[in-house]
Design a protein around this nucleic acid. Structure first.
Length: 565
RNA sequence: GCUUCCAUAGCUUAACGGAUAAAGUACUGGUCUUCGGAACCAGUGAUGGGGGUCCGAUUCCUCCUGGGAGCACCA
């Protein structure tokens, strides 16, 4: 890459003026007036060299090796050195984008080039809400981005299928007069268990007898009591089928599902073994990890009834995850931030159990909540927004405003919702408002897809028989509008690399929006088809490349494009 | 009480310690003999407060104010 070339040349120049042991940096200026790349190195060297930064800049530039890839080097104000890439280089890159598949820089977490991303994790017997949708959108795009930079990525999903919430739901069903027929639609069944969860929860809070009964059911589920198993199995299956429909609707899938119910026994075993090693201690009938000496919270791993808590089960999960797919560089857990304490503690415990196996291999990606502007989303208060409901609302909005077929509307609706989550940083709390939050214009997926469709439309108007020779392009004079698009296209692989390093899909989203904006501006001001032959060929290439980058970028975000809308 | 995250335009959000803090939306005004107007252009408008480090701070440190989350038997 040209960036690496410049860095290498910079190092050579520094060597010539006898500067050693500096960290080379190259920035990408936000303002295009400052070139394609920029270095603030002279400013950083003032102390060390005891010279003023402008002098240092001049010395560096004087000793900078000749390089055909660079058009211009400029020294600015306090001590910046700005570099402009040669047009020939940019056009070569453009040709590559048009003719070849995308190639990205490689980025790994370790020698195995293999990692697992754990995401989605809904709980059975509960709704799949917009928080899950943000989670799945985030997880899916991270999988695709990390694959793009060269990793083998395993998609896993840890689903909660035991616990008090399920006991509440089953209690509700057992005490309900209404019995749902197996022939009913899945939708009806999901609504039914939703309602039953609600009544179970109320009973748990209001009626001490009910509470006792629910706790009993909870125990029965853990112990796989045959008296509760048929009901548990059946309702669990409904949930899982419903989740599967959701995954499909949002273009996601998993290599491996893990269920909380699998890790009950092994969790207890691991904790008991580790207790002997002195990792845990007994306290008030429970087995706990005393985090104080590590500056961490104290958390319970096995409760006083002898059941493993979520923490206890996590140890068994980790053991399984790290053994199912050979050696992994990293497991990324896509989970909300209130679990931070939980993960800090379980990661520490795992490290104490087997340092070689677990140390530095676990990462908690704390993606934030989707909060309702009107208040907090809580299933107890019944103001949970179901993911499917939201998509359907956006579909309505789109079909009211525009005229397109069902399939296109579906794709645009899913795209709008996913994009509206992904354009924000993962650590930003999204304040959600049904009317305002899902944009279908402005910085939105439909805007990007519209730009893509527009590109295709232009391209369809010409016959792609002859790729005009590149030689004629060498004499081309590139105007500012074209140049803005061209430079952005050139940056795409680096953006993807950064998104991978920072686990930040929003970098790609914002880049695509920038590209689409620049292209649309160019499009507005410049004729493509009715221009002189060489210019026309060049502009067609820009159009083709823009379309291709948008489509690829959206793919990396887990968003589909359409050809017509 | 302790820990931790956050605070940017009316609202929702961007910005690797860098140059004039960037968008969307809303509002005001404009572009059209459309290569797809779901477009384009212009204007109004912001770093919560006090210290500090640095050539340079929205970014790092510290204090204050105001929010969110977590801190033993839920998941």
């Amino acid at each position: 890459m040209i960036k690496d070339e410049i860095l290498k040349n910079l190092a050579e120049a520094l060597e010539k003026i006898n500067v050693k042991d500096v960290v080379l940096t190259l920035e990408k200026p936000a303002n295009t007036d400052f070139g394609d790349y920029s270095s603030s190195l002279p400013l950083k060297l003032t102390k060390q060299l005891k010279k003023n930064p402008m002098t240092i800049s001049e010395e560096i530039v004087k000793n900078f090796p000749k390089n055909d890839s660079i058009k211009k080097i400029e020294i600015v104000k306090p001590g910046f050195i700005n570099f402009w890439i040669a047009d020939v280089q940019l056009i070569n890159r453009l040709t590559e984008v048009v003719e070849k598949n995308f190639i990205y820089p490689e980025y790994y977490f370790g020698k195995n080039k293999k990692l697992m991303i754990e995401f989605a994790h809904p709980n059975t017997h509960k709704l799949f809400h917009i928080g899950h949708l943000r989670n799945i959108s985030t997880g899916e795009t991270l999988v695709r981005i990390l694959e793009a930079v060269g990793n083998k990525v395993i998609r896993s999903n840890y689903e909660g299928d035991v616990g008090l919430h399920i006991a509440k739901c089953l209690y509700g069903i057992k005490n309900s007069e209404f019995i749902i027929q197996n022939s009913e639609s899945l939708q009806k069944k999901i609504e039914f268990i939703g309602k039953m969860y609600s009544t179970g929860t109320k009973a748990y809070e209001d009626d001490p007898k009910a509470k006792e009964e629910i706790l009993k059911i909870n125990k029965m589920i853990y112990e796989k009591d045959p008296k509760i198993m048929p009901l548990w199995t059946e309702t669990r299956a409904w949930s899982l089928e419903y989740f599967e429909e959701n995954y499909k609707r949002f273009y996601s899938h998993f290599d491996r599902y893990y269920f909380e119910s699998e890790f009950y026994k092994r969790g207890v075993e691991i904790v008991k073994q580790s207790l002997k090693k002195g990792i845990f201690e007994k306290s008030q009938g429970a087995i706990i990890f005393n985090g104080k000496k590590y500056g961490l919270d104290t958390r319970v791993f096995i409760n006083s009834l002898g059941f493993p808590t979520y923490e206890g089960k996590e140890l068994a999960l980790a053991e399984k995850e790290f053994s199912d797919f050979g050696e992994l560089d990293k497991i990324i857990h896509t989970v909300t931030p209130e679990q931070t304490s939980f993960f800090k503690v379980t990661f520490k415990v795992e490290e104490l159990i087997d340092e070689k196996k677990y140390k530095n291999k676990q990462y908690h990606l704390a993606y934030e909540w989707v909060k309702l502007k009107a208040g907090k989303m809580s299933s107890r208060e019944g103001n949970v927004i179901e993911a499917n409901w939201l998509i359907d609302e956006v579909k309505k909005k789109i079909s009211e405003k525009f005229n397109c077929d069902e399939e296109t509307t579906e794709i645009l609706a899913v795209a709008s919702v996913k994009y509206s989550f992904l354009k924000n940083g993962t650590q930003t709390i999204i304040h959600f408002d049904i009317d305002e939050s899902i944009a279908v214009d402005g910085n939105s997926a439909p805007y990007l897809i519209y730009t893509y469709v527009r590109c295709q439309s232009v391209l369809n108007k010409v016959k792609h028989n002859s790729q005009n020779s590149l030689n004629s392009l060498n004499s081309l004079i590139i105007n500012t509008d074209e140049s803005n698009v061209l430079r952005l296209i050139n940056q795409f692989p680096e953006i993807v690399e950064q998104a991978a390093i920072q686990l930040a899909p929003n970098l790609i989203a914002n880049y695509l929006y920038d590209l689409a904006q620049k292209y649309n501006y160019f499009y507005q001001k410049n004729k493509i088809l009715e221009s002189e032959e060489t210019t026309k060929q060049f502009r067609l290439m820009l159009t083709q490349a823009t379309g291709k980058v948008i489509k690829e970028g959206l793919y990396l975000l887990g968003i589909k494009t359409v050809e017509k809308m």
